[in-house]
Amino acid sequence: MGIIGWIILGLIAGAIAKAILPGRQGGGWIVTLILGVVGAILGGWIGSAIFGVGINEFWSLSTWLLAIGGAIIVLLIWGLITGRNKSSTR
């Protein structure tokens, strides 16, 4: 999968992860893109380490599930980091 495929996958996975998680996460579409791509990479790494399945093809169900799962993990971590920063500045 090329870089354009990773960007599209990351943007969509990040948007789906934001829709799944309750509450309001900070950041616009650029942050969603970055967190989605990082989440897709994390999901691919976790999938290959635990299940022996990586992110290989754009239209594979396992690719999408791993990317969305990784994006959810990254978004949860992002929420913890930004939540602490906002509460400590008040």
Results as ranks from 00 to 15, higher is better:
residue 1 M to D: 05
residue 2 G to L: 08
residue 2 G to T: 07
residue 2 G to P: 13
residue 3 I to R: 07
residue 4 I to A: 10
residue 9 L to G: 11
residue 10 G to M: 02
residue 11 L to E: 03
residue 11 L to Q: 06
residue 14 G to E: 09
residue 15 A to R: 12
residue 15 A to G: 11
residue 16 I to W: 02
residue 17 A to W: 06
residue 17 A to I: 13
residue 18 K to E: 14
residue 19 A to H: 06
residue 21 L to T: 05
residue 22 P to R: 07
residue 22 P to S: 14
residue 23 G to K: 03
residue 23 G to M: 02
residue 24 R to V: 03
residue 25 Q to E: 08
residue 26 G to Q: 08
residue 27 G to K: 04
residue 28 G to M: 03
residue 29 W to H: 01
residue 31 V to E: 02
residue 32 T to E: 08
residue 34 I to A: 00
residue 34 I to D: 02
residue 35 L to A: 10
residue 35 L to E: 01
residue 36 G to N: 10
residue 37 V to C: 03
residue 37 V to R: 04
residue 38 V to Y: 01
residue 42 L to V: 15
residue 46 I to L: 15
residue 49 A to F: 09
residue 50 I to G: 04
residue 50 I to H: 06
residue 50 I to F: 14
residue 51 F to E: 07
residue 53 V to A: 11
residue 55 I to L: 13
residue 57 E to D: 15
residue 58 F to C: 04
residue 58 F to Y: 13
residue 59 W to A: 13
residue 64 W to I: 09
residue 65 L to E: 09
residue 66 L to I: 06
residue 67 A to S: 13
residue 69 G to Q: 15
residue 69 G to F: 11
residue 70 G to D: 07
residue 71 A to V: 00
residue 72 I to H: 05
residue 73 I to R: 03
residue 74 V to K: 02
residue 76 L to W: 10
residue 76 L to I: 10
residue 77 I to L: 04
residue 78 W to F: 07
residue 78 W to Q: 00
residue 79 G to N: 01
residue 79 G to P: 01
residue 80 L to S: 02
residue 82 T to C: 03
residue 82 T to I: 12
residue 84 R to Y: 05
residue 84 R to S: 04
residue 86 K to V: 09
residue 87 S to C: 00
residue 87 S to Q: 09
residue 88 S to K: 06
residue 89 T to M: 04
